[in-house]
Design a protein around this nucleic acid. Sequence first.
DNA 1: ATTCCACAGGAAGCGACGGCCC
DNA 2: GGGCCGTCGCTTCCTGTGGAAT
Length: 407
Amino acid sequence: MEDSSSIFDKLLEEDGIFENKEILRPSYTPNRLPHRSKQVNEIARILVPALKGETPSNILIYGKTGTGKTVAVKHVGRELEKKGEELNVDCSVIYLNCKVVDTQYRALAHIARHFDKDVPLTGWPTDQVYHELKDALDDRKKVATIMLDEIDRIIGKSGDDILYNLSRINSDLERSKVSIIGISNDLKFTEVLDPRIKSSLGEEDIIFPPYNADQLRDILQQRAERAIKEGAINSEVIPLCAAFAAQEHGDARRALDLLRVSGELAEKNGEEIRPEHVRKAQEKIELDRVLEVVRTLPTQSKVVLLAIVKHQECDRNTLTTGEVYEMYKKLARKIDIETLTQRRITDLISELDMLGIINAVVVSKGRYGRTKEISMNMSIDEIQNVLLTDYRLQNLKDYCPSTQTKL
DNA sequence: ATTCCACAGGAAGCGACGGCCC
DNA sequence: GGGCCGTCGCTTCCTGTGGAAT
C-alpha cells in the first residue's frame, strides 16, 4: 500500500497555485454575496414570517444563467434554518433542482425523504407519496420552504401538477405551513402557466439582472482571495475574466469557470496566472462546449459536419452548400444511411451555424449564383476525432475526398 | 438594362412516434 | 386497446434574389 500512497504524496506535495479550488466552483455558496444584497434582503423580508411560525408568501425568481439566483436562495435558506434553530422554530428548507428531479413523483418523494420518510424510487401511486409527505410535514409544527430551481424545465411536462399539488398542500395541513420559491431562467415562462398556479406562485416577484463587468470583478476578487494562493495571480487576470464574462450576458458562472480553468492551465505549466492563460481558457471552454454539442448531434447532422470537415481538410477555402451536399451524399452512401434532400441539408447547415460550430453566411457570387459560404474556425482535428467516435461513422475514418473522382 | 446562376428559405403536407383519454 | 392530437423530421414544390456577366 505504500506504493500507492507515495504516488499521491508526490502529487499532493507539488506546489499548486490553488489554496482551495472548490471556492471557484459554481456550486460553492459563499457567505457574502456582492451586489446581491438588495435581492437577498428582499427574499429574507418575504421569508421572515417563517420564523414566527406563519406562512411566508410564495416567491418567483427570474434571471438569466449565472446571475446568482441559486446561490442567493441557498444562502438565505441556510441563514433561515440557522436562525430558526436559535429561536427554536422548526424552519426546514428543501432545495431541489427540477432538471434533475423532473417528475411529480420524484419531486414529492425527494421532499418526503428529506423528512426521513422511506419512499421507494418507484412503485407507489403518486397519491400515496403525497399523503406520506403530508403526514411527514404535519407530524409536528413546522414551516417548510421548498425551493424549486430551474422550474421552467418541468412545466409543460405534467410538471404543472407538482406546482398545483404543492400550492394546495397548505389547505390539507393542520399544523405546518409550506411556502414555495420558484426559480426560473426563462423570463416568459409564466405565460404558459395555469393562471391559478401563476397567481398563487407569483405572490412576490424578484428579478436578478445580469452582472456588469465591475460587479463580476468584485465577485471574482472575493473568491480568488481565498481560492488562490497569494502572489500566484497577475493583477490583470481578474479584470480580464470579468470583461470576457460580461460580454457573455454577465454570467458569473462563466467568469468563475474562466478563472478556474486559467488557473489549471497555469498550474500545469508551473506558472502564475497571466492574461494569456485566460485567453487560452476562453478557447478551451469554448472548444469543450462545442465538442460536447458535436458528440450529441443526431447522425445526419454529424455526417453533414463531417462532410464540411473533410472538405476543409484538403482545401481550406470556404465552401458552398452545393459542395457540402455533394460530399455529404458520398459519405452517406458510403456508410449506407438515408440520403436526405438538399433542402433538408440547408436546414441542418443553418442549425450547425446557430450552434456556433460552423460559420455560414449567405453571399451572392453574381452570375455564379447565391449560396452560403461555409467555414470553420474551430479545431478541425478535434472535431473530426469526436465525430469518428460515433460507431456509425467509423467507416469514414480513412475516407479521403481527393482520391475520389468519379461521379 | 437584362439575364441568369445557385442557391435561400417559405408553405404545405406526409408519416412516424409518443402521450393522453376514454 | 384504440382513437385522437401535437410534434418532429423530412420531402415536394415553390417563389425570391444579389450581382457578375452579358
